[in-house]
Design a protein around this nucleic acid. Structure first.
Length: 425
DNA sequence: TCTGGGGTCCTAGGACCC
DNA sequence: TCTGGGGTCCTAGGACCC
């Protein structure tokens, strides 16, 4: 018995979710846009075959999408998050360990019976997910995370694999590693692949066989880890708990540039409220806040700025965080700058299990407790009835600059009123 | 006109200490 | 005139991921 590492992801996840709730799209091209309807961040296979590139700004491809009669959707994260939860539940029941890596992707592990190929196991899991959720997935299997990622590429790339590939039982992996371009290896990005190409390294096999002193000199332990994983030595373990996150950031682009301090303040308050309710959801406290804003990077007088403030006693209290972040907002604001984006980052997070108690001041203790209760009640109501049901006075002003979502799908599987009605004949 | 958002990890260099 | 060396902690920024 040995441990097999699995990498499982939803195929064209956002597009698949949209197709799930709107079957009329089936067979047609579909793209999903980023926040603010900025770029194309997902396509179904039909749109890909029609030559629509990933990451392109929407305004540049609008005409082409129209001509080809490709459907367009704004992203609907409430829907994707819900489908994702259902998917992860099934995976958790079927793997021994599971690390949820992103909304559409997980690493897992199971014991491999001696020398046994896990193709059939994967096929069963894939069928189970499709039957229960209606989303197609791909499964890559190997000895390490890097190899299971490569396996997943091969599962998608080679049609006869029908979405599953197990590189872990193949002794001579060379012909397969040769098929993987070096920039497709997990952990090799733009910078590293440019450098590797200049050294004549173009695919995963050549990378595996590079001298480790050479890679260590240039990229330190990060490079060595990737090399070892390619050779089949597990260096990046499965991380099951993700509760101890290190920072929370909330940022948005505006639908049009803003240049008044008041608008910036309102935006920052709104982001702090979202961030602090996330913080409470994960039972964490923060002791530092950064606020940032910038103008259009493509413009001539590009301006960006940020400021960080410390919180003396780690907290998850919206009121304290709003106060500090507004002071910081004052610092980064400059008149006559056309701001297109702003955000907040909470860092130095810690578990609220070890919250520092106020010791001697009875009045402060009372205030602290009632504030905590108030925050939790607000969270509870907003979780049940939508994010803006109850809010702080300062954030209630009408916001015209809120991001665009012109093509949003209406249906949310998280709201009973939006569940489609099916009439039996 | 119009180019997303949310994360992690690592490293170099500064501040500070003895 | 001449001004050490070693360690730790923190931060900013880079590179990468989805």
């Amino acid at each position: 018995m040995s441990k097999a590492i699995l990498q499982i992801d939803g195929n064209n996840f956002y597009a698949s979710c949209e197709q799930l709730i709107d079957p009329s799209i089936k067979g047609k091209g579909l793209v999903v846009l980023s926040n603010n309807d900025g770029c194309i961040i997902a396509r179904n296979s039909e749109a890909r075959k029609m030559g629509i590139p990933m990451g392109q700004p929407y305004f540049k491809s609008k005409n082409k999408l129209n001509q080809l009669n490709i459907k367009v959707r704004s992203s609907n994260y409430e829907l994707y998050g819900d489908i994702s939860n259902r998917l992860m539940q099934i995976l958790r029941r079927n793997c021994e360990e599971l690390e949820i890596y992103s909304i559409d992707e997980a690493f897992g592990s199971i014991q491999r019976p001696k020398e046994k190929c896990l193709y059939q196991w994967g096929k069963n899991l894939r069928a189970l997910v499709y039957q229960n959720i209606g989303i197609p997935i791909s499964i890559g299997i190997g000895e390490t995370k890097v190899l299971s990622k490569i396996s997943n590429h091969l599962a998608k790339k080679i049609e006869k694999n029908s979405g599953i590939f197990d590189i872990g039982i193949i002794d001579n992996k060379d012909p397969y590693l040769n098929l993987i371009k070096v920039d497709k290896v997990w952990g090799i990005g733009k910078r590293m692949s440019t450098w590797l190409n200049s050294k004549g390294i173009t695919n995963a096999k050549e990378l595996r066989d590079i001298s480790s002193t050479q890679i260590k000199e240039k990229y330190g332990v990060v490079g060595i880890r990737i090399l070892n994983e390619l050779k089949g030595n597990l260096c990046i373990p499965i991380k099951e708990s993700s509760s101890d996150r290190k920072e929370i950031s909330v940022s948005r682009s505006f639908s049009y540039p803003i240049d008044s301090l008041e608008e910036l303040r309102q935006a920052i308050i709104k982001y702090v409220l979202i961030a602090s309710s996330k913080l409470r959801k994960y039972n964490q406290l923060s002791s530092a806040i950064t606020v940032f804003t910038n103008t259009n990077i493509h413009s001539q007088d590009y301006y960006k700025n940020k400021a960080t403030g410390k919180i003396n006693i780690p907290t998850s209290d919206s009121r304290i965080m709003i106060k500090i972040s507004l002071e910081l907002t004052q610092k980064i604001f400059r008149p006559y700058r056309k701001l297109i984006k702003a955000g907040v980052i909470l860092h130095k997070l810690q578990s609220n299990k070890y919250k520092q108690k106020i010791l001697f001041n009875q009045k402060l203790i009372k205030e602290d407790l009632s504030q905590e209760r108030l925050n939790h009640i607000i969270d509870k109501i907003n979780n049940r009835s939508g994010r803006d049901t109850i809010n702080w006075g300062s954030s209630m002003i009408e916001k015209e600059w809120s991001p665009r979502r012109e093509k949003a799908s209406i249906i949310k599987t998280t709201n009973i009123e939006h569940i489609p009605i099916i009439y039996a004949k």
